[in-house]
């Protein structure tokens, strides 16, 4: 059974959406980033997207780029990521790795799957890997019993929604806006349309919405129709502005309250 699916189902049983927070490993350094992830877990996040630093983060906006750049220059790699995975799952949340494809390919796809499972990770989100290119990862994740999360976008055709959701396990990442990561003032209406279309393509998998969520009010809005809410840049901003684990804890409290009052306008 999928670790992510189970946790999201448990949240649903409580009548709420799941909260998934993202932070890259290695900003401002490895220990401080892991400490912040654990703070997220303690403050109520259900799952943590553990970001693998990458030199060419093609779909990330300036906020995430800035943090990741520091980690890349410090030489942060998969070993540090696996350490974060252990810490997060040890703290009681589901650990899912978020990585551009090249760091995984370089580490070795089989080796990555084996080591991730051994560290207690649930699976991986691969933002620049489409199922069409994912043969090796699909085989390795099957063998290791890992979740694999692919993305859908407003521009995805119905046929692609079907093939992408069919290849996914754990949840499907609904990238609600066309664009790069970064907190936005408004969560696009496109999110709801895309969630509905994706659900039609595959009704039996959890749909988590990301790209642009920055506060509890927006989380509440999304929680009305999504199974989970993903927050990234807003967390990274807490770190960039030096508020560290305390800032992350406060933001998590706000977001966790948000996913519990689904649909109640701010």
């Amino acid at each position: 059974m999928s670790g992510l699916a189970e946790r999201i189902a448990a949240a649903k049983a409580e009548g709420r959406a799941a909260l998934i927070g993202y932070l890259p490993v290695g900003y401002p350094d490895v220990d401080a980033s892991i400490e912040a992830m654990v703070a997220m877990v303690e403050a109520g996040a259900d799952a943590i997207e553990i970001g693998v630093p990458y030199s060419d983060p093609g779909i990330d906006g300036p906020v995430i780029q800035e943090a990741v750049d520091v980690a890349v220059r410090a030489g942060v790699g998969m070993r540090d990521v696996l350490k974060a995975v252990e810490a997060v799952s040890g703290a009681g949340a589901v650990a899912v790795v978020m990585s551009y494809w090249n760091p995984i390919e370089r580490y070795g796809v089989e080796r990555f799957a084996t080591d991730l499972a051994a560290a207690g990770g649930a699976g991986a989100i691969t933002p620049d890997l489409i199922p069409d290119e994912a043969g090796e990862w699909i085989a390795a994740s099957d063998r290791a019993g890992l979740d694999r999360v692919f993305l859908v976008a407003p521009s995805s055709t119905d046929a692609r929604l079907r093939s992408t959701t069919a290849a996914s396990r754990g949840f499907v990442y609904v990238a609600s806006t066309m664009g790069v990561t970064g907190a936005r003032d408004t969560v696009s209406d496109a999110a709801r349309t895309l969630v509905d279309r994706t659900r039609e393509a595959r009704p039996d998998i959890a749909l988590c919405v990301g790209l642009g969520v920055s506060n509890g009010a927006q989380a509440a809005e999304l929680a009305a129709f999504a199974d989970g809410v993903i927050v990234g840049s807003a967390y990274v901003r807490e770190m960039l502005e030096g508020r560290g684990a305390d800032g992350v804890r406060a933001l998590t409290a706000d977001l966790a309250a948000g996913v519990r009052r689904a649909g109640v306008p701010a």
Binding site: G58, I59, W101, P127, D128, L129, I130, D132, E133, F150, L151, V152, A153, P154, S155, S156, T157, R160, T164, A175, M178
Partner: peptide, 12 residues
């Protein structure tokens, strides 16, 4: 070769 891009670009 191939296509290692976010899904959002596949339609284009």
């Amino acid at each position: 070769g191939g296509r290692f891009v976010p899904e959002a670009l596949i339609a284009a």
